[in-house]
Write a protein that binds this DNA or RNA. Structure first.
Lengths: 362, 362
DNA sequence: TTGAAAGCGCTAACAT
DNA sequence: ATGTTAGCGCTTTCAA
């Protein structure tokens, strides 16, 4: 690896001149000098040592990205969009960390970023406690958080990019209601994530407006302590068993996300129930896998690519100019109809009638 | 961010003493001094600036990880294992790059790593051309390559960690044959990856040994130029249509990997064929998703976690001691039977008989 | 238009 | 047992 010294010697100039061409100050020199330096750079295959530059300027062209688990296809999808966007549009590289929803891991990641001189980070967390975020911000991290709305109380020098979760769940529920479903359930892993409770609110809002409040319920299960790649799906699978055993079994299930919906479908299969004949399932996320499974999953699609781009723009923007105020960016999802939702009463083919023959749950 | 200077001042010692405690040379000082320094470090929340250390020592505690696309669940899975292993066992962080199977992207990633001072990289590539690998190694990168056996010709200062692809495909094919399948196909995306051609060899070897050479064939399709998250699945889906239209339709399909198998199953569904009644499908990889889809996918399981650990051990090992010779590490896969493979002739329930009533393809 | 020089925070001889 | 010091490769005043 050649250094700026080598280049200077090769070109017969001083290192400051080389540094000037490196930093776009070509106007300060004769054209001929510029050419000589450029030739030398090419001849020696010189690439400036970024560690040295960073030590001097305090700038890195790296971003941190924290996800619960990159093995979860949803986070894989987001991560790909973020990395590509950061790289292609800003020349930034991405340092990845899996947190397994563990506070110590998150804190450790922030510490390491700071030590490495990385000052921008995009966080996809599901931890309720945001304390360590604030502390990281105080220590100089520029942070963008995905899918956790700004808490009113928190002082938060943090950007928030999220989807309208209330609306997403509402759309899903409405879709079920439109197909005649009257006994509804919202299936989720337990634990109070902000996005989760918003979705639950949206679910109940839709049910209430349709006069179905009394027959709508939340079913949930604890996640395992370790965050495996299949955790969400496993929870869904177990939940399907629970639902299958319910005396007044719901016919329309809104899953908190697509992975859990996949688990539900597998679980219903295990229980001898057929989707959508016996029970309808709808997801939230819009993973590419949702069109692949059998039956193809109806779901509420999140604009992941656009959200990723916004997150990258925000971190790098605030890295360049810390004076920019933080903001909240809310994205609207979109209903995608596929095959996992059928009429509540399969005997009547078209739009299902309210199921008057069956006894209401009320 | 406080510096080593601050700590020295706070503890009333020189910076070398602080540096000594930082670098595990506590034996060189009085216990009391050590304590004072440690107290100061804690009081000031001091973390050594890694950029400075790196500039001095040339060492980073970072690893590069190159994947075709982190949105592909298989790479997400591997990436998670690698990151976790590197972090928990060595305190290394991982810089992630998506290559979209693009040579320029790969080269650019190597350049950036070198410039950042990162000297270890794990590469999951599918490019046939390995030239730029060699060049990166010459420029100082310590490289471990996943799933591409060492080429006999290449000089290669590269470690190779791979699965026995020949055996994997052979096991899959044997499983199909054991269930009575006589017309076999190997479904793959076209393009000559090393792992791909080994699988094809394994497929034909199994077919030949069973006297089925003449009725075994490879079906393939070009991948799109852009590497989307769903590319593999899309190819599989298209392939299923091709297969469904074949005059002497194969009844047992070996998919080059699980993602392509998922696509096949979706494609057969589109074509009105039922798996495994009308056609049997078997994958290779053992993604956690394979137990989730309907029907659950029979597949040949790769020992991903163990392979990931080996890769991490190798890069970091050779980073610490460049004298260690490179090696090739071959892992054995394992058959996992699920529901996507049925008897060739569904009318005879048990082990299927050779389908004598139908005219052979020979 | 160019160059000299200070210094970013740290490590590791080498002194004391 | 502890301190002094010379850089690592770069950026950036300031001077020439």
């Amino acid at each position: 690896m050649s250094t700026i010294q080598d280049v200077a010697r090769h070109a017969g100039v001083s290192i400051s001149t080389v540094s000037n061409v490196l930093n776009g100050r070509a106007d300060r020199m004769r054209h001929e000098t510029l050419t000589r330096v450029q030739t030398a750079i090419r001849a020696l295959e010189f690439t400036p040592n970024r560690a040295a530059r960073q030590l001097k300027t305090g700038q890195t062209s790296m971003l941190g990205l924290l996800v619960p688990s990159i093995a979860n296809p949803m986070y894989g999808f987001i991560a790909r969009e973020i990395e590509t966007s950061a790289q292609e549009r800003y020349g930034y590289r991405v340092v990845l960390g899996n947190t397994y929803r563990n506070k110590e891991k998150e804190t450790g990641f922030f510490d390491d970023l700071l030590a490495q001189g990385v000052r921008g980070v995009i966080v996809i967390s599901s931890l309720v406690d945001e304390q360590h975020f604030e502390s990281a911000v105080e220590r100089g991290l520029v942070m963008v958080s995905y899918d956790r709305r700004a808490t009113p109380d928190a002082s938060s020098g943090i950007d928030h990019v999220s989807v309208d979760n209330f609306e997403a769940a509402r759309m899903a529920t409405l879709h079920l209601i439109g197909r005649g479903h009257r006994r509804l359930a919202f299936a989720t892993a337990s634990g109070l994530t902000m996005s989760r409770s918003e979705k639950i609110r949206g679910f109940f809002a839709a049910a209430h407006d349709a006069g179905l409040g009394a027959s709508a319920s939340v079913v949930d299960r604890r996640t395992l302590s370790e965050y495996g790649d299949s955790e969400m799906a496993d929870v869904g699978r177990a939940l399907a068993g629970d639902i299958a055993r319910m005396p007044q079994r719901p016919t329309g299930i809104v899953a908190v996300n697509d992975m859990l919906a996949f688990g539900l479908m597998a679980g219903f299969r295990d229980a001898g129930l057929e989707v959508p004949r016996d029970v309808s399932v709808i997801g939230i996320d819009g993973l590419f896998l949702s069109s692949l499974v059998t039956p193809a999953l109806s779901t509420v699609q999140l604009p992941v690519a656009r959200m990723a781009r916004t997150m990258v723009d925000r971190v790098i923007g605030r890295l360049d100019d810390p004076a920019i105020p933080t903001g909240e960016f809310l994205f609207q999802p979109e209903m995608v109809e596929r095959a996992s939702v059928g009429p509540a009463d399969p005997t009547s083919p078209g739009r299902a009638a309210p199921e008057s023959p069956k006894p209401g749950i009320t």
